[in-house]
Write a protein that binds this DNA or RNA. Structure first.
Length: 210
DNA sequence: CCGGGTCACACGGG
DNA sequence: ACCCGTGTGACCCG
C-alpha cells in the first residue's frame, strides 16, 4: 500500500504494559520538510522567555515557549503554517483530535526541562500526547515513578514523533536534562487534547478516539 | 518545575 | 599500574 510507505518510519514501541504505552517514530517527517519547519518556526513564532517563582526565588524558564490552539481559530490568531502542517500530519497518523500545541525552543545544552509529568487536569482522559521534534537531537529521560523503576533514555531526533499514552503521565516522569555536550537548537511541538473546561472555546471534542 | 549543592565515578596526563 | 585534577551527570533539597 502506498499510504503505508509514507508513514513507515521504523517506529518502535518503547513501553507497552499496564503503566502505559510509549512509541517512538524516527523520520516521521522527511528531513527536508522537518528542516523547513524548523527554520520557519524559529523565526515566525513569537517565542516567550518566561520567569517562574519556584520555592524561594524567581528563576528563568530554561527554554523559550509558545502556545497555539488548534481547530477553527480566528484567521488572525491562526498558528503558523508549519504548525498547522505538523498538526495535520500528526492527526492523520494518530487519529487523535488534538486541540492544543505547546512549543519549546531549546537554544543549547543549557536549556532543559526538569523531570515532570503532564498535569492530568489539563489532559482529556484517555488521550495521548504527541511530541514532534525538529532541529538538533536531544536526549529525553523517561523514568517510572514506582518500582520496577525502569529508566529510558530516548534520543529525540529531528523529524521524530514520540507518542505517550495518557496512563504514561500517571506512572512515568519525562524530562530533557541539561547537557555539557555542544548541541544545536531544538524545537518541540507537544500536541495535547485539553478538556473543554480548560481549552479555549471551540475545538474540544469527547469520546470515541484512542 | 528550577538551580544549587553534594557525591560518585570515568577519563587521561604525568 | 598509580595518583589526582577535571568534567559530567545522578540525586536531593527547598
Amino acid at each position: 500500500m502506498h499510504q503505508l510507505a509514507l508513514f513507515d518510519a521504523g517506529e518502535s514501541v518503547l513501553v507497552e504494559d499496564e503503566r502505559g504505552r510509549i512509541e517512538y517514530v524516527p523520520h516521521f517527517v522527511p528531513p527536508s520538510l522537518a528542516q523547513a519547519w524548523f527554520v520557519e518556526l524559529r523565526s515566525a513564532v513569537g517565542w516567550e522567555a518566561g520567569r517562574r517563582w519556584m520555592y524561594d526565588r524567581e528563576v528563568d524558564v530554561p527554554r523559550l515557549t509558545a502556545h497555539f490552539d488548534l481547530g477553527q481559530g480566528e484567521p488572525d490568531g491562526r498558528p503558523p503554517a508549519a504548525v498547522r502542517a505538523a498538526a495535520g500530519r500528526v492527526a492523520t497518523r494518530t487519529r487523535v483530535p488534538f486541540n492544543s500545541v505547546g512549543l519549546n525552543l531549546y537554544r543549547d545544552g543549557r536549556d532543559s526541562v526538569a523531570a515532570h509529568n503532564d498535569h492530568l487536569d489539563e489532559l482529556a482522559p484517555g488521550f495521548p500526547i504527541a511530541l514532534v521534534s525538529l532541529g538538533a537531537t536531544r536526549r529525553m529521560t523517561i523514568r517510572a515513578k514506582e518500582p520496577p523503576r525502569r529508566v529510558l533514555n530516548v534520543d529525540l531526533e529531528g523529524g521524530s514523533l514520540l507518542v505517550m499514552s495518557y496512563e504514561t503521565q500517571q506512572h512515568y516522569t519525562h524530562g530533557v536534562p541539561k547537557t555539557a555536550e555542544r548541541v544545536g537548537e531544538r524545537i518541540s511541538l507537544a500536541f495535547r487534547v485539553r478538556p473543554a473546561s480548560v481549552a479555549s472555546a471551540g475545538g474540544a471534542r469527547n469520546g470515541r478516539y484512542r
